[in-house]
Computed example of a mutant assay.
Amino acid sequence: MALALAVLTASGMLSLVSPGTAEAASAASACSGRKAKTLTFSTGVVRVYRRSGYVCAVTVPKRPGVRQWMSVSIRARGGRPVVDKGLFSKRAGPVTVHAGRRQVWIQGAVGRGSVSSGWIRC
């Protein structure tokens, strides 16, 4: 009886989570650290996190659940870009680079929409 009550309570709590909250939690769990930047564009958002000299990014679509072309990349100045691209339904990434104190260039895309940061310091 107690087990059945616990299962019903847990399923009720899960139904209270809105899709936007679940999407943000999914992106946050993919990268550790503090959120450093958010790059928005017409079809999605790139969330950038920083921790101990490492920079991590994920691209999240505005309409998750549908398989569509997505990409995310980070390039530390003087280094090569780290890229994740393909057909995804929830997110592209995470991708992580060690930037130290160097600037980074971040790019993300969902479908035909895209964003490019230029050289920035996170």
Rank of each mutant, 00 (worst) to 15 (best):
W105Y: 14
K90M: 12
V95I: 14
S89R: 09
V58G: 01
W119F: 10
P94F: 15
A57G: 07
D84V: 07
T59Y: 01
Q103W: 09
G86P: 04
R63Q: 11
P61S: 08
R67Y: 11
V60H: 01
I120W: 06
I106S: 08
G113M: 01
R77I: 00
S71T: 13
T96F: 13
S117Q: 04
V72W: 01
I74L: 13
P61H: 03
R63V: 12
V55D: 02
L87R: 12
S71E: 14
A99I: 06
A109S: 10
I106D: 01
G53S: 13
R112D: 05
G86N: 10
I120P: 07
R67T: 04
I120K: 10
R77T: 01
A109L: 00
A99E: 10
V58Y: 02
P81I: 03
S89M: 08
I120C: 12
I120L: 12
I106A: 09
S114P: 00
V97Q: 09
G113E: 02
C56Q: 05
V83T: 14
V60T: 06
V58E: 01
R67A: 08
P94N: 15
G86K: 08
Y54F: 15
V72R: 03
Y54C: 13
G79T: 04
G93L: 12
D84M: 07
T59L: 05
R75A: 04
Q103E: 12
A57C: 07
P81K: 07
Q68A: 09
G93C: 13
Q68G: 11
K85G: 05
S71A: 15
G65Q: 04
T96H: 13
K90R: 14
S117W: 03
S71F: 09
G53Q: 14
R101N: 15
K62G: 08
T59W: 00
R80C: 02
A109T: 00
V97M: 13
I74S: 02
V115H: 04
I106F: 09
Q103F: 06
R80H: 10
Q68P: 03
T96M: 15
H98G: 14
D84N: 14
H98F: 15
F88D: 03
V83R: 06
W69Q: 15
P61C: 10
V95F: 14
R80N: 12
R67E: 06
R80T: 11
P61Q: 07
H98I: 10
L87W: 11
M70C: 11
V104H: 05
M70H: 09
W119M: 03
P81Y: 03
A99R: 07
A99Q: 08
V72K: 04
S71H: 11
G100F: 09
V58F: 02
G118N: 10
K90G: 07
G111E: 02
A57Y: 02
Q107C: 10
V58I: 05
S89Q: 10
V95W: 08
G118E: 08
V72Q: 05
G113K: 03
R75K: 15
S117L: 09
S116R: 13
V58K: 00
R80L: 11
R112Q: 04
R91Y: 15
R101Q: 13
Q103I: 04
R75V: 05
W69T: 14
R67W: 07
P81F: 04
R112T: 08
C56S: 11
V66H: 09
V55L: 09
R63K: 14
R91W: 12
C56D: 04
